[in-house]
Amino acid sequence: MGRIMTVTQTLLSVQNVTKAFPLPHGLIQRLRQVPPQAVHALNGVSLDVMRGETLGIVGESGCGKSTLARCLVRLHECDTGRVVFGDTDIASLNGPARRAFNAKVQMIFQDPYSSLNPRMKVRQILTEALSVHQMRPSAEIPARIAELLDLVRLPQDAAEKYPHEFSGGQRQRIGIARALSVEPEVLVADELVSALDVSVQAQVVNLLLQLQEQLHLTVVFVAHDLRLVRHISHRVAVMYLGKVVEIGPTEALFSAPRHPYTQALLAAAPELDPTRRTRRVAAKGELPSPVNLPQGCLFNTRCPQAFERCFKERPVLSAEGAHLSACHLPG
């Protein structure tokens, strides 16, 4: 398991990005001089996405992985830090340049039921994307739609149907076709299959893998299913409370996790093979509130190995080759 990549060229670079969502600050709170609060979704995320790779991003719900995905396609603006595509900061893009960026970095959404406009036929959905981005002269649009439907293995008569006439898996294929219509270099898939039946998940994931090879796509695959991420990713980033705590090649990360959180996460995942079951210590307690972040290391409230320094100083990703971990523990 785990795929291996050799060529490396950074395509999308996330540099120390933070994002907080302010909580409502009402009149009474203002009068009582309660300071405004915010949900700190991202707390200094840095990672590079290499051209042609699949980067898996895993973590518990609430760890900020969806927020990160949305920052990558600029559905959210970063508070501080920046996302660099090629060699431009995406926050600086406007007008036609921004639209061109949108075409290059596309997103596939989690919920197959709300991600398609229920009042538009598949043909209309695809035609709109093709014509707004002027991908084809209008005479060639029908042929291109036929191509796209073939690409995602949908029958040709799908074009004249409305989204509610399809199953969840088929709807995700339509979402993929829409994203591919503008010929992107990067696909950001946010929980692509978590809303689907297990039997359908494999089909959609395998379709994504084939499309990646065929079209030389770079994929950012956000998910909470560790086995799925292990199956399709070249590299994996583990997120906790809005920070990347560990990032590395899939096999290295799964076989020799460095960060106590990664170890706990892997220990919590069910293992089918009893001989491979290990007794790693699971994380205790609950995810702390992202409104009031812990001092020092964000994981110190749940870490079985936390010591004095962990409560004072927030660790940064420290490097050993390609496999990085943000932890004060030696080794």
């Binding site: 600029r74 960026f101 949108n102 596309q106 997103m107 229920p118 009042r119 707004v132």
Partner: peptide, 26 residues
């Protein structure tokens, strides 16, 4: 707030297009 509106934004559609072609009919 539904994903299809976000999909439109991620496509780079203008707010006017999203409002009148996507949201209003719904």
């Amino acid at each position: 707030r539904l994903d299809y509106a976000d999909a439109g934004r991620a496509m780079g559609y203008t707010p006017l297009r999203i409002i009148f072609r996507h949201l209003l009919p719904n």
